[in-house]
Simulated assay, not measured.
Amino acid sequence: MTATVFSGAVAEAEPRPAAPAVATTTPAVTRPAAVEKEPVCLRLKGAEACVGPEGSDRPGITVEDTANDNFHPAVEYYLNGYLGTKYVIHNLGRGGEVRGNREIGRIVTFRAALYEGNHRVKFGRWKTVRDMTKYPLKRETRVTPAEARARSKTCTSTNGAATMCFGEQKTFVFVCDTGADKYQARAQYFLAGDPTARFEIHQLAGVNTCGKAEHGDLAVSMYRASVYNHNRRVATRLYKYN
């Protein structure tokens, strides 16, 4: 599969893992993957985020700009119930354009948001969908920074606290937190030379942990590693070109 490029001030509430299921005598019902035929969408004024199966008009995870204004929409999401790594796709195109990524997990928890520059001004509620893709990404939560470097073609670091590594041919991107501090590592990058969709990986799990994203056949074209204190950037370097 390939990555898809289709061309407040209120306290943030992060999603919580679902409570454990209580055993009952009712037999389990097995549901085949990708039974949904239409995308599941969430809307804000100016943004529409969707998760859909292959064959629909919005496969994978996408975000559409639905208003010609000074804001840009984004979709924020977690994969496979793991809250240690958050992904964000910023749609920097014009009104009516859609940006996204086909590479999703079996479980996707997502919401729509509106940004003014790098400042998030509005966001909606979280929603979780399951079994939307026939070939879901597996969860990787135990990759260390050393392993990420060994598996990658290119790496860059910022102040020894955030490392971003990636490889081509079925492109993957790692971002690793390498500093024992209160800050979080973040990767920010663009794919296939398209300046209208910025991808981000926020690594929230702590020191010596890495998050991973996959993007199919699209290569990373511009990238940087940054360090954040929540949503305030405290260290970064200029973008590098691949």
Rank of each mutant, 00 (worst) to 15 (best):
V10I: 10
V10Y: 14
E14P: 09
P15K: 03
R16M: 08
P17T: 02
P20Q: 09
A21E: 15
A21L: 15
T24K: 10
P32M: 12
A33Y: 01
E36R: 15
E36Q: 15
K37M: 13
V40M: 12
C41D: 11
R43Q: 09
L44T: 01
K45P: 02
P53R: 05
G55Y: 09
S56G: 03
S56D: 02
G60M: 03
E64N: 00
F71C: 01
P73Q: 03
P73W: 00
A74K: 02
E76P: 04
L83P: 04
G84A: 03
T85H: 03
T85E: 03
Y87K: 13
G93W: 00
G93E: 00
R94W: 00
G96H: 05
G96D: 00
V98A: 01
G100Y: 04
G100K: 02
I107H: 07
I107D: 09
T109M: 02
R111Y: 05
L114P: 01
E116D: 07
G117I: 04
G117V: 05
V121Q: 06
K127Y: 10
V129E: 04
D131F: 08
M132F: 13
Y135H: 12
L137P: 02
R139L: 14
R139F: 00
E140P: 07
R142M: 09
R142K: 14
V143I: 13
T144H: 14
P145V: 00
A146V: 10
A146Q: 15
A148P: 13
R149G: 10
R151L: 11
T156A: 15
T158M: 03
T158N: 07
N159W: 06
A161G: 11
T163Q: 15
M164Q: 15
F166P: 05
F166E: 11
F166A: 10
G167S: 15
G167I: 08
E168S: 10
V173C: 13
V175G: 01
V175H: 02
C176F: 04
D181Q: 06
D181F: 07
Q184P: 05
A187S: 11
G193H: 01
T196S: 10
R198A: 02
R198T: 02
E200F: 04
I201L: 12
L204T: 03
G206H: 05
K212V: 05
D217A: 11
L218V: 01
A219V: 10
M222I: 04
Y223N: 08
Y223D: 05
R224P: 01
Y228P: 11
N231D: 14
N231C: 13
N231I: 02
R233G: 03
V234C: 10
Y241A: 14
